[in-house]
């Protein structure tokens, strides 16, 4: 049972990091990024490469994955989206562009996994880091590290958004892009920032993900629904939504699978996606703006004085 809870917390932490990027880029650019899950897998392979080639512990490679991930996020925006936005492409076309980008990343990941196998003379198309994990008083490293990452991210975002001039402009343009633009705030900067952070956080999460589950090039296809469910249930129009949604989806998925595995035996992992889908559908039907878009949430916010 305790293992289940630990797994649930780790998965939730990672989902929060992944959903944060999705929500931020949706707010600034207005397009749901279908390549978000592949960002994470790119991160996993960067961590794997550093481990194999220079023996760097995957946790220590997080700064590197963070920066490379940021570059990946930026190139997504520059290569796949910006040329289309300039030509006033419709939202549907932008979504197709992120699907195309996802396919390109998938192709690169697959090709790279075989290249790496050829170099290390091992099979790298499937790998885990679980055996490398450390342990403090029975608390596994993945829980400590992923929780720290979430805390640092929230703290960093809070300081940036509420305590710096750039952050205030950023918030203004996230809350109301057209108004911010009219007020002379450079919306382009907020886009660049959000895409950098989106890629960086996702790759960072990706370097911890192999401690939790097996990674194959197709893993992105397996987790993409959970990320979208987290962002939508939490509310796509509010950064905090990713936090709320990430924990709700992460914990529900894990606990639901646990209960199901007691009832039906092992091999039920895939049904965790059913619970995410159902929660996402319920949100879309009842309140498309998600939990942070409700009147109640606004009252909570006022009460917290945010």
């Amino acid at each position: 049972m305790i293992d289940v809870l630990i797994g649930a917390m780790v998965w939730s932490n990672l989902l929060v990091l992944l959903a944060l990027g999705l929500t931020m880029t949706y707010i600034t650019t207005g397009v749901p990024n279908f390549a978000q899950a592949s960002f994470a897998i790119v991160g996993s392979y960067i961590a794997l490469t550093l481990l194999r080639l220079i023996g760097l512990n995957p946790y220590l490679s997080i700064p590197v994955t963070f920066i490379l991930g940021g570059i990946l996020g930026l190139s997504t925006y520059y290569i796949a989206l910006k040329p289309l936005i300039k030509r006033k492409a419709s939202i549907e076309m932008l979504m197709i562009a992120t699907l195309a980008w996802d396919l390109i990343l998938f192709g690169i990941i697959g090709a790279y996994s075989e290249v790496l196998s050829a170099i290390t003379k091992k099979t790298e198309t499937l790998f885990v880091f679980t055996s490398l994990d450390f342990n403090i008083y029975g608390i596994p490293g993945r829980l400590i590290v992923s929780s720290l990452l979430v805390l640092l991210t929230i703290l960093g975002l809070y300081l940036l958004l509420y305590k710096t001039k750039f952050g205030i402009a950023l918030r203004a343009s996230m809350e109301n892009p057209s108004l911010a633009e009219a007020m002379g705030i450079n919306v382009e900067n907020t886009r660049l920032f959000s895409w950098f952070l989106s890629g960086a956080l996702a790759c960072m999460a990706g370097s911890v993900l192999p401690y939790l589950q097996e990674i194959v090039p197709q893993t992105g296809y397996f987790i993409v629904v959970s990320i979208f469910a987290a962002s939508i249930v939490g509310g796509l129009y509010h950064i905090v939504g990713a936090l709320v949604g990430g924990y709700i989806i992460g914990i529900s998925e894990s606990l639901f699978t646990y209960i199901l595995s007691i009832l039906l035996g092992p091999g039920v992992l895939v049904y965790s996606k059913v619970i995410s889908l159902l929660m996402m559908i319920a949100t879309v039907l009842l309140h498309p703006r998600g939990i942070t878009g409700t009147e109640m949430w606004r009252r909570v916010e006022r009460w917290l004085n945010l």
Binding site: L84, M93, I96, A97, A100, W101, L103, I104, G107
Partner: peptide
């Protein structure tokens, strides 16, 4: 894998 990359790029070019 090359096929995926090629068709992904083709889609972006058309768009």
């Amino acid at each position: 894998w090359l096929q995926y990359i090629v068709f992904g790029i083709l889609a972006l070019l058309i768009l």
